[in-house]
Simulated scan of single mutants.
Amino acid sequence: MGSRMLPFVLLALLVALHAQLWLGRGSVPRVTEMQRQIEAQKAANDLARQANERLASEVHDLKEGLDMVEEKARSELGMVKPNEVYVQFTPR
């Protein structure tokens, strides 16, 4: 009787293992989704790293020289030096 039950027990174990593989916590679809999320996060991290590098460069320029400060003041605040004439041209 025991030898007749062995194939059924092994089959039940096989079904249980396959269920874990396809439906469990570490299933193939879940791992694939997590890998996609990791790639998306890496891309977001790269964009953030580039923005940080750009800002660090700008901070360095602001600390080291006044050229960047003058450029910002001219473009964003409309700064004009003494004895300088400001002319604004607007196309039709």
Rank of each mutant, 00 (worst) to 15 (best):
P7V: 01
P7H: 09
P7Y: 13
F8S: 06
F8Y: 12
V9E: 14
L10D: 02
L11S: 12
A12K: 04
A12E: 08
L13E: 07
L13F: 02
L14I: 10
L14F: 03
L17S: 10
L17F: 00
L17R: 11
H18I: 02
H18T: 04
H18K: 09
A19Q: 09
A19V: 04
A19P: 01
Q20Y: 00
L21N: 08
L23S: 10
L23C: 10
L23F: 13
L23G: 11
R25S: 12
S27H: 08
S27Q: 09
V28I: 15
V28P: 01
P29K: 12
R30Y: 06
R30M: 12
R30T: 06
V31M: 13
E33I: 03
M34W: 00
M34Y: 00
R36F: 03
R36P: 00
R36T: 01
Q37W: 12
E39R: 01
E39W: 05
A40N: 07
Q41C: 04
Q41L: 09
Q41I: 04
Q41V: 03
Q41W: 02
K42D: 14
K42M: 09
A43K: 13
A44G: 02
N45T: 11
D46R: 13
D46F: 07
L47K: 00
L47C: 04
R49Y: 04
Q50S: 10
Q50A: 10
Q50T: 03
A51N: 11
N52F: 03
N52V: 04
E53D: 09
E53K: 01
R54C: 03
R54Q: 11
L55G: 02
A56V: 02
S57T: 06
S57P: 00
H60C: 02
H60K: 07
D61C: 03
L62T: 05
K63I: 03
E64N: 05
G65H: 12
G65F: 05
G65N: 13
V69G: 05
E70W: 11
E70I: 05
E71A: 11
K72P: 00
K72G: 01
A73H: 11
A73V: 13
R74L: 08
R74T: 15
R74C: 08
S75H: 13
E76R: 13
L77P: 00
L77M: 15
L77I: 04
L77E: 14
L77S: 13
L77Y: 13
G78S: 12
G78W: 10
G78R: 03
G78D: 14
G78H: 13
